[in-house]
Design a binder for these strands. Sequence first.
DNA 1: ATAAGTTTGTTAGAAAACCTAACATAGATT
DNA 2: AATCTATGTTAGGTTTTCTAACAAACTTAT
Lengths: 107, 107
Amino acid sequence: MSKEASYKDKKVITIGIVRELTGLTERQIRYYEERKLIFPERTNGGSRKYSFADIELLMDIAEKIEDGVQTFEIRQEMMKEKKAADAKLRKKMIQGQLNAQFGMRRI
Amino acid sequence: MSKEASYKDKKVITIGIVRELTGLTERQIRYYEERKLIFPERTNGGSRKYSFADIELLMDIAEKIEDGVQTFEIRQEMMKEKKAADAKLRKKMIQGQLNAQFGMRRI
DNA sequence: ATAAGTTTGTTAGAAAACCTAACATAGATT
DNA sequence: AATCTATGTTAGGTTTTCTAACAAACTTAT
Protein backbone atom coordinates (compact mmCIF):
# COMPACT_ATOMS: atom_id res chain seq x y z
CA MET A 1 0.00 0.00 0.00
CA SER A 2 2.84 2.33 0.87
CA LYS A 3 5.21 4.07 -1.51
CA GLU A 4 7.79 5.46 0.90
CA ALA A 5 10.34 2.69 0.67
CA SER A 6 13.16 5.16 1.06
CA TYR A 7 14.48 3.85 4.36
CA LYS A 8 13.78 0.20 3.87
CA ASP A 9 15.36 -0.12 0.45
CA LYS A 10 18.30 2.24 0.68
CA LYS A 11 21.60 0.37 0.69
CA VAL A 12 23.54 1.95 3.50
CA ILE A 13 24.49 -0.81 5.92
CA THR A 14 27.92 -2.45 5.99
CA ILE A 15 28.44 -6.15 6.40
CA GLY A 16 29.54 -6.01 10.01
CA ILE A 17 26.25 -4.45 11.05
CA VAL A 18 24.37 -6.97 8.95
CA ARG A 19 26.23 -9.71 10.79
CA GLU A 20 25.12 -8.27 14.11
CA LEU A 21 21.51 -7.81 13.06
CA THR A 22 21.07 -11.21 11.43
CA GLY A 23 23.37 -13.41 13.49
CA LEU A 24 24.88 -14.78 10.30
CA THR A 25 28.62 -14.89 9.70
CA GLU A 26 30.19 -12.69 7.05
CA ARG A 27 31.17 -15.85 5.25
CA GLN A 28 27.53 -16.86 5.00
CA ILE A 29 26.37 -13.44 3.90
CA ARG A 30 28.94 -13.34 1.12
CA TYR A 31 28.15 -16.87 0.09
CA TYR A 32 24.46 -16.12 -0.33
CA GLU A 33 25.50 -13.32 -2.61
CA GLU A 34 27.65 -15.73 -4.59
CA ARG A 35 24.56 -17.90 -4.94
CA LYS A 36 22.63 -14.87 -6.21
CA LEU A 37 20.18 -14.65 -3.37
CA ILE A 38 21.11 -11.12 -2.45
CA PHE A 39 22.57 -8.13 -4.27
CA PRO A 40 24.35 -5.54 -2.18
CA GLU A 41 25.70 -2.37 -3.71
CA ARG A 42 29.30 -1.28 -3.29
CA THR A 43 31.14 1.78 -2.09
CA ASN A 44 33.77 3.26 -4.36
CA GLY A 45 36.35 1.36 -2.37
CA GLY A 46 34.47 -1.90 -2.87
CA SER A 47 32.77 -2.46 0.48
CA ARG A 48 29.32 -4.03 0.39
CA LYS A 49 26.24 -1.99 1.31
CA TYR A 50 22.93 -3.58 2.31
CA SER A 51 19.41 -2.32 2.96
CA PHE A 52 16.99 -3.18 5.74
CA ALA A 53 15.05 -5.11 3.13
CA ASP A 54 18.20 -7.12 2.45
CA ILE A 55 18.51 -7.88 6.12
CA GLU A 56 14.96 -9.17 6.28
CA LEU A 57 15.60 -11.25 3.22
CA LEU A 58 18.72 -12.68 4.80
CA MET A 59 16.76 -13.68 7.85
CA ASP A 60 14.21 -15.45 5.69
CA ILE A 61 17.03 -17.19 3.87
CA ALA A 62 18.64 -18.26 7.12
CA GLU A 63 15.39 -19.81 8.25
CA LYS A 64 15.02 -21.80 5.08
CA ILE A 65 18.62 -22.96 5.22
CA GLU A 66 18.00 -24.23 8.72
CA ASP A 67 15.03 -26.13 7.36
CA GLY A 68 17.38 -27.89 4.95
CA VAL A 69 16.41 -25.95 1.84
CA GLN A 70 19.31 -25.50 -0.55
CA THR A 71 20.34 -22.15 -1.95
CA PHE A 72 19.40 -22.96 -5.52
CA GLU A 73 15.91 -23.96 -4.40
CA ILE A 74 15.56 -20.73 -2.49
CA ARG A 75 16.67 -18.93 -5.60
CA GLN A 76 14.02 -20.67 -7.66
CA GLU A 77 11.32 -19.75 -5.18
CA MET A 78 12.49 -16.18 -5.23
CA MET A 79 12.42 -16.00 -9.00
CA LYS A 80 8.89 -17.32 -9.02
CA GLU A 81 7.80 -14.75 -6.48
CA LYS A 82 9.51 -12.03 -8.43
CA LYS A 83 7.81 -13.12 -11.62
CA ALA A 84 4.44 -13.00 -9.91
CA ALA A 85 5.15 -9.59 -8.45
CA ASP A 86 6.25 -8.28 -11.82
CA ALA A 87 3.07 -9.50 -13.45
CA LYS A 88 1.04 -7.78 -10.79
CA LEU A 89 2.96 -4.57 -11.30
CA ARG A 90 2.50 -4.72 -15.07
CA LYS A 91 -1.19 -5.20 -14.59
CA LYS A 92 -1.34 -2.22 -12.29
CA MET A 93 0.57 -0.08 -14.76
CA ILE A 94 -1.76 -0.98 -17.56
CA GLN A 95 -4.64 -0.08 -15.29
CA GLY A 96 -2.96 3.26 -14.74
CA GLN A 97 -2.65 3.85 -18.47
CA LEU A 98 -6.29 3.09 -18.97
CA ASN A 99 -7.25 5.36 -16.14
CA ALA A 100 -5.16 8.17 -17.57
CA GLN A 101 -6.87 7.88 -20.93
CA PHE A 102 -10.39 7.08 -19.97
CA GLY A 103 -10.66 7.53 -16.25
CA MET A 104 -11.82 11.13 -16.39
CA ARG A 105 -14.50 10.42 -18.94
CA ARG A 106 -16.69 8.34 -16.72
CA ILE A 107 -20.28 9.41 -17.05
CA MET B 1 0.82 9.07 14.35
CA SER B 2 3.12 6.15 13.64
CA LYS B 3 4.90 3.85 16.04
CA GLU B 4 7.08 1.83 13.68
CA ALA B 5 10.25 3.86 13.91
CA SER B 6 12.36 0.76 13.57
CA TYR B 7 14.09 1.68 10.34
CA LYS B 8 14.31 5.39 10.80
CA ASP B 9 15.77 5.31 14.28
CA LYS B 10 18.02 2.29 14.16
CA LYS B 11 21.69 3.26 14.30
CA VAL B 12 23.30 1.23 11.57
CA ILE B 13 25.01 3.64 9.19
CA THR B 14 28.73 4.37 9.26
CA ILE B 15 30.19 7.81 8.88
CA GLY B 16 31.36 7.37 5.31
CA ILE B 17 27.83 6.70 4.13
CA VAL B 18 26.57 9.61 6.17
CA ARG B 19 29.13 11.78 4.42
CA GLU B 20 27.82 10.65 1.05
CA LEU B 21 24.18 11.13 1.96
CA THR B 22 24.56 14.53 3.59
CA GLY B 23 27.42 16.07 1.63
CA LEU B 24 29.10 17.04 4.87
CA THR B 25 32.72 16.20 5.61
CA GLU B 26 33.56 13.70 8.32
CA ARG B 27 35.25 16.52 10.17
CA GLN B 28 31.98 18.42 10.27
CA ILE B 29 29.96 15.41 11.31
CA ARG B 30 32.30 14.67 14.20
CA TYR B 31 32.41 18.30 15.20
CA TYR B 32 28.64 18.51 15.47
CA GLU B 33 28.82 15.54 17.78
CA GLU B 34 31.43 17.32 19.85
CA ARG B 35 28.99 20.22 20.08
CA LYS B 36 26.31 17.80 21.27
CA LEU B 37 23.98 18.19 18.33
CA ILE B 38 24.02 14.54 17.45
CA PHE B 39 24.61 11.29 19.31
CA PRO B 40 25.75 8.31 17.29
CA GLU B 41 26.17 4.92 18.86
CA ARG B 42 29.41 2.96 18.60
CA THR B 43 30.46 -0.46 17.46
CA ASN B 44 32.55 -2.56 19.82
CA GLY B 45 35.58 -1.36 17.95
CA GLY B 46 34.56 2.26 18.38
CA SER B 47 33.20 3.20 14.96
CA ARG B 48 30.27 5.59 14.92
CA LYS B 49 26.81 4.38 13.88
CA TYR B 50 24.05 6.75 12.74
CA SER B 51 20.35 6.41 11.95
CA PHE B 52 18.35 7.84 9.08
CA ALA B 53 16.86 10.22 11.62
CA ASP B 54 20.38 11.38 12.44
CA ILE B 55 21.02 12.00 8.78
CA GLU B 56 17.94 14.15 8.47
CA LEU B 57 18.95 16.03 11.57
CA LEU B 58 22.41 16.60 10.11
CA MET B 59 20.89 18.04 6.99
CA ASP B 60 18.79 20.41 9.05
CA ILE B 61 21.89 21.41 10.98
CA ALA B 62 23.85 21.98 7.79
CA GLU B 63 21.16 24.30 6.55
CA LYS B 64 21.21 26.37 9.71
CA ILE B 65 24.99 26.54 9.70
CA GLU B 66 24.85 27.90 6.18
CA ASP B 67 22.45 30.53 7.45
CA GLY B 68 25.09 31.62 9.94
CA VAL B 69 23.52 30.02 13.01
CA GLN B 70 26.12 28.85 15.52
CA THR B 71 26.15 25.36 16.95
CA PHE B 72 25.30 26.43 20.48
CA GLU B 73 22.25 28.29 19.22
CA ILE B 74 21.15 25.25 17.28
CA ARG B 75 21.61 23.24 20.43
CA GLN B 76 19.43 25.63 22.39
CA GLU B 77 16.69 25.42 19.79
CA MET B 78 16.89 21.66 19.87
CA MET B 79 16.63 21.55 23.65
CA LYS B 80 13.57 23.71 23.51
CA GLU B 81 11.95 21.50 20.93
CA LYS B 82 12.81 18.45 22.96
CA LYS B 83 11.35 19.96 26.07
CA ALA B 84 8.12 20.69 24.23
CA ALA B 85 7.99 17.18 22.81
CA ASP B 86 8.60 15.70 26.25
CA ALA B 87 5.79 17.72 27.74
CA LYS B 88 3.48 16.53 25.02
CA LEU B 89 4.50 12.94 25.64
CA ARG B 90 3.97 13.26 29.38
CA LYS B 91 0.55 14.64 28.76
CA LYS B 92 -0.26 11.76 26.48
CA MET B 93 0.95 9.24 29.05
CA ILE B 94 -1.17 10.76 31.75
CA GLN B 95 -4.10 10.57 29.38
CA GLY B 96 -3.28 6.88 28.95
CA GLN B 97 -3.27 6.35 32.69
CA LEU B 98 -6.61 8.00 33.03
CA ASN B 99 -8.00 5.94 30.19
CA ALA B 100 -6.69 2.75 31.75
CA GLN B 101 -8.40 3.53 35.03
CA PHE B 102 -11.57 5.15 33.94
CA GLY B 103 -11.81 4.61 30.22
CA MET B 104 -13.83 1.39 30.47
CA ARG B 105 -16.32 2.85 32.83
CA ARG B 106 -17.85 5.27 30.46
CA ILE B 107 -21.61 5.09 30.64
C1' DA C 1 41.70 46.27 19.23
C1' DT C 2 42.86 42.35 21.65
C1' DA C 3 41.50 38.16 23.39
C1' DA C 4 38.72 34.29 23.17
C1' DG C 5 35.73 31.24 20.83
C1' DT C 6 33.93 28.97 16.40
C1' DT C 7 34.30 26.22 12.39
C1' DT C 8 36.78 23.63 9.23
C1' DG C 9 40.92 21.70 6.88
C1' DT C 10 44.82 18.94 7.13
C1' DT C 11 48.15 15.70 8.79
C1' DA C 12 49.89 11.53 11.08
C1' DG C 13 49.75 7.09 12.97
C1' DA C 14 47.08 3.43 14.74
C1' DA C 15 43.20 0.35 14.88
C1' DA C 16 39.07 -1.58 12.97
C1' DA C 17 36.56 -3.25 9.19
C1' DC C 18 36.38 -5.17 4.85
C1' DC C 19 38.08 -7.52 0.61
C1' DT C 20 39.46 -11.67 -2.32
C1' DA C 21 41.35 -16.07 -2.83
C1' DA C 22 42.55 -20.41 -1.35
C1' DC C 23 42.40 -24.61 1.21
C1' DA C 24 39.79 -27.74 4.30
C1' DT C 25 35.90 -30.45 5.77
C1' DA C 26 31.56 -32.59 6.65
C1' DG C 27 27.35 -33.79 4.53
C1' DA C 28 24.17 -34.17 0.69
C1' DT C 29 23.38 -35.40 -4.18
C1' DT C 30 24.26 -37.56 -8.50
C1' DA D 1 33.01 -42.71 -6.21
C1' DA D 2 32.75 -38.25 -7.71
C1' DT D 3 30.66 -33.91 -7.35
C1' DC D 4 28.30 -30.34 -5.12
C1' DT D 5 26.94 -27.62 -0.97
C1' DA D 6 27.72 -24.87 2.94
C1' DT D 7 30.76 -23.09 6.09
C1' DG D 8 35.17 -22.36 8.68
C1' DT D 9 39.65 -20.66 8.63
C1' DT D 10 43.78 -18.42 7.16
C1' DA D 11 46.64 -14.96 4.85
C1' DG D 12 47.73 -10.64 2.95
C1' DG D 13 46.13 -6.45 1.24
C1' DT D 14 43.08 -2.37 0.97
C1' DT D 15 39.62 0.69 2.81
C1' DT D 16 37.53 2.93 6.46
C1' DT D 17 37.50 4.89 10.80
C1' DC D 18 39.59 6.68 14.96
C1' DT D 19 41.91 10.31 17.99
C1' DA D 20 44.83 14.14 18.59
C1' DA D 21 47.11 18.07 17.24
C1' DC D 22 48.14 22.20 14.69
C1' DA D 23 46.59 25.89 11.68
C1' DA D 24 43.76 29.36 9.63
C1' DA D 25 39.93 32.31 8.81
C1' DC D 26 36.09 34.31 11.06
C1' DT D 27 33.06 35.89 14.70
C1' DT D 28 32.00 37.39 19.26
C1' DA D 29 33.12 39.30 23.68
C1' DT D 30 35.85 42.21 26.65
